[in-house]
Simulated assay, not measured.
Amino acid sequence: MRQGITEEQSRLLTSWLGEFSVVQDCSWPLHDTNVLHVVTSSGEGFIVKASTTSHHIRREIAAHAGGFEGLRGRVPALRHASVEARILVTEFLPGVLVEGTPAEDDPETYRQAGELLARIHRPAGDSCTYATALAAKTRAWMDRAHGLLPESQLESFEQELDALRPGVAQLVATHGDYQPRNWLQDNGQIKVIDFGRAEPRPWVHDLVRLSHQRFVGRPDLADAFHSGLDKMVAPAEADLWRLENLNQAIGTVVWANQVGDTAFEQTGRAMVERVLSGA
């Protein structure tokens, strides 16, 4: 068994799948989760995710427990899971990752992705504490950003946070990392994978990274996405949208620096500049 898979996890896999072989190690560098494409002796394909430390396993299991009604074949189907052992098994979803392929520049990809996201966003109730907690998390990131960002930017962040009045947040079941690296293209059909960052949040959370990456200089992609999603940020959501941007921008810088991902840290710095400039 692959290094990093515990004896307990290995035992569970054998009890669930019987004999199997590893086709591909799909684990991401710098992440603490093992992701394996495996095939059983009967020819069935599965994705195994296992960790001894990551909270993403719990989040993904919870996301599947909430259900993806009407989306079988467009999102992975959960077959087996153990929160205690931090391991899950989903059916293998055929397709090619959109990132780095011509599909990443095709408006139709984004129209379908927006349409899928609208179906993933199941209502999860209202929260009077979500915005307050997110502002506190943002300030915690700011405390760790001294020396990474100019003090003038940190002061601007503080002023921005003080001026926001986001109020009650309407929560939905968000994906948490909605972008082309987590989309598959299969004969023209877009599918969504990796719900390891899924949690109840405002819907705008899933819009932030796309807005700072794929939509920059590509209004056609943004228009296609919103056409599928059938939703735009409303004036009443402006402060919450601003708060999500502030949080993810500074969080990207600090987290990427912490794990040594220089390219992603630069992405975060660009996000910070874009947010503070009002772009």
Rank of each mutant, 00 (worst) to 15 (best):
Q3P: 03
G4W: 10
E7Y: 00
L12R: 09
T14C: 06
S15G: 08
W16V: 04
F20T: 12
C26A: 12
T33C: 01
T33L: 07
V35G: 02
H37D: 12
T40V: 03
S41R: 15
S42C: 05
S42Q: 15
G45M: 12
G45Y: 13
T52I: 11
E60P: 03
H64A: 03
G70T: 00
G73K: 02
A77Q: 02
E84F: 03
V89Q: 11
F92E: 07
F92Q: 08
L93M: 13
E104N: 01
E115R: 10
H121I: 00
A124G: 00
G125V: 02
S127W: 03
T129R: 12
T129Q: 11
T129L: 12
A133M: 11
L134N: 05
A135D: 09
R144N: 11
G147K: 08
L148V: 05
S152Y: 07
Q159P: 05
R165H: 14
G167V: 06
H175T: 07
Q189D: 12
K191P: 08
V192S: 07
I193S: 09
R197G: 03
A198N: 04
V208I: 15
R209Y: 14
L210N: 01
F215D: 12
V216S: 00
P219R: 11
L221K: 15
A224R: 05
A224V: 00
L229A: 10
D230L: 06
V233D: 10
A238D: 11
D239H: 15
L240C: 14
N245R: 15
N247I: 06
N247V: 00
Q258S: 05
T262Y: 11
G278I: 09
